[in-house]
């Protein structure tokens, strides 16, 4: 086939209007020799379906492979040496920064918690102290009041007792005078009714009456 194609190429593109594209595509590297073919390429291409389907045109394989190798190798080197390490670095750095910041935040939070705890403890202690003081004061006042009340009550009791004693004495005294008053009254009454009576007789009569 290759020989035939070369023969066609030697025969020239005008010898067979249907096939020159095939020859053109099949003989790789011929392009440089015949740049005028590039112009005919397009029109022949449009009209012809006899040519090789471009993706299966093996004459372009070598060129594509070479270029793919060059470009992909370049891409690989660029990626593995420059781009990816750089992006990886950026991401790692950010991660480190985030981790550091988080640790710092955690540290601050712990400190805050400690401060809150110590404040709470101080507050509780102060409250307890205040409570104790209030309790003590209340107890002091209460005992004071109790003392005073006891004293006042004692005082009052003594005064009551004194008063009661004087009342009793007065009563006894008054009772003692009742007989005398009665005798005098009797003496006066009897004198009015039947003549004078001695004081002694009046007394005896009163005593006798009061006994009955």
């Amino acid at each position: 086939m290759a020989g035939q194609l070369v023969a066609q190429a030697q025969g020239g593109p005008t010898a067979q209007p249907e096939t020159p594209t095939v020859e053109f595509e099949e003989v790789g590297g011929d392009h440089a020799l015949s740049p005028d073919l590039a112009g005919t390429h397009g029109e022949v291409h449009d009209s012809g379906h006899s040519e090789v389907f471009p993706p299966f045109d093996s004459s372009t394989f070598a060129g594509q492979l070479i270029w793919l190798a060059i470009t992909f190798a370049l891409l690989y080197v660029l990626m593995s040496r420059v781009a990816l390490p750089r992006i990886g670095n950026i991401i790692d750095q950010r991660q480190a920064r985030i981790d550091g910041d988080l640790a710092a935040a955690e540290h601050s939070r712990k400190k805050t918690d400690e401060a809150i705890a110590s404040y709470e403890a101080a507050l509780a202690a102060a409250r307890a102290k205040a409570h104790a003081m209030a309790e003590e004061t209340r107890a002091g006042i209460k005992s004071d009041i109790d003392n005073k009340r006891a004293r006042v009550e004692q005082d009052l009791a003594a005064k009551i007792a004194g008063a009661e004693a004087s009342i009793a004495a007065t009563k006894v005294e008054a009772m003692g005078k009742v007989d005398e008053i009665a005798a005098e009254t009797v003496q006066a009454l009897v004198a009015q009714i039947s003549g004078p009576v001695s004081e002694a007789e009046a007394h005896a009569a009163v005593a006798k009456a009061s006994k009955e």
Partner: peptide, 26 residues
């Protein structure tokens, strides 16, 4: 020149692809 790997449209776009990737990422 003769026999060398000519710069085809395919090659151009392979190169453009690589250039676009590398260029953008960098």
């Amino acid at each position: 020149g003769e026999g060398g790997p000519a710069l085809t449209n395919s090659a151009l776009f392979m190169a453009l692809t690589v250039a676009a990737i590398g260029g953008y990422l960098l």
